[in-house]
Simulated scan of single mutants.
Amino acid sequence: MRSLTQSVLRWPEPHQVLRQVETWAAEQAARVPSLERVAVFGSYGRGQAGVGSDLDLLLIDAHASGSQQERLLLWPLERLPLSCDALVLTPAEHSALLAEGSRFAGELRRDVRWVWPRRS
């Protein structure tokens, strides 16, 4: 018997989430010309996302400045389809992070999946 008092929630498929991230990134690049690239990492980068996965996002912004918290205020992450953890880096900061050899740098090198590049 079907209950009329319960809601049924459907988690978006990974390809739907990635398509929405691409669209979001293109919209943001039109608004913020210094946005150079956008990537997912973590479970979406590895292709292992499933029900309950959050979105880990990397934004490369040539003019990023201030603390991470200040940088994140520029980006309307609430428009993305899932809860999101984001990291905003300049190209130089991104290169330095990858060169440092930390565990996180290794995870980024292994898991990052670029979903939007600025085309010249």
Results as ranks from 00 to 15, higher is better:
19 R>N: 12
55 L>H: 01
88 V>A: 02
113 R>E: 13
80 L>N: 06
79 R>S: 14
107 E>R: 11
109 R>W: 09
81 P>C: 05
26 A>E: 15
96 A>T: 12
23 T>W: 12
63 H>T: 14
19 R>W: 09
100 E>P: 05
97 L>M: 13
91 P>K: 05
65 S>I: 06
58 L>E: 02
111 D>Q: 13
73 L>Q: 15
99 A>M: 09
92 A>N: 09
47 G>L: 09
45 G>P: 01
79 R>I: 07
77 L>V: 07
14 P>S: 04
104 F>M: 06
114 W>R: 06
88 V>T: 04
5 T>V: 13
7 S>N: 11
25 A>N: 01
39 A>C: 07
36 E>Y: 03
108 L>C: 02
40 V>Q: 04
112 V>N: 07
113 R>T: 12
64 A>T: 07
108 L>H: 00
62 A>K: 11
99 A>Q: 13
87 L>T: 14
107 E>C: 11
11 W>V: 04
105 A>S: 13
1 M>P: 14
60 I>V: 15
28 Q>D: 04
24 W>V: 04
31 R>N: 06
19 R>Y: 08
99 A>G: 12
79 R>E: 15
40 V>H: 03
51 V>C: 09
27 E>I: 07
64 A>I: 02
43 S>G: 03
14 P>V: 02
45 G>I: 03
76 P>C: 12
116 W>V: 06
17 V>I: 02
103 R>D: 15
5 T>E: 15
118 R>M: 04
119 R>P: 07
62 A>C: 10
76 P>H: 10
16 Q>A: 12
85 D>N: 11
3 S>G: 14
99 A>W: 08
22 E>T: 14
2 R>T: 15
38 V>D: 00
12 P>F: 05
84 C>F: 02
88 V>H: 00
64 A>E: 03
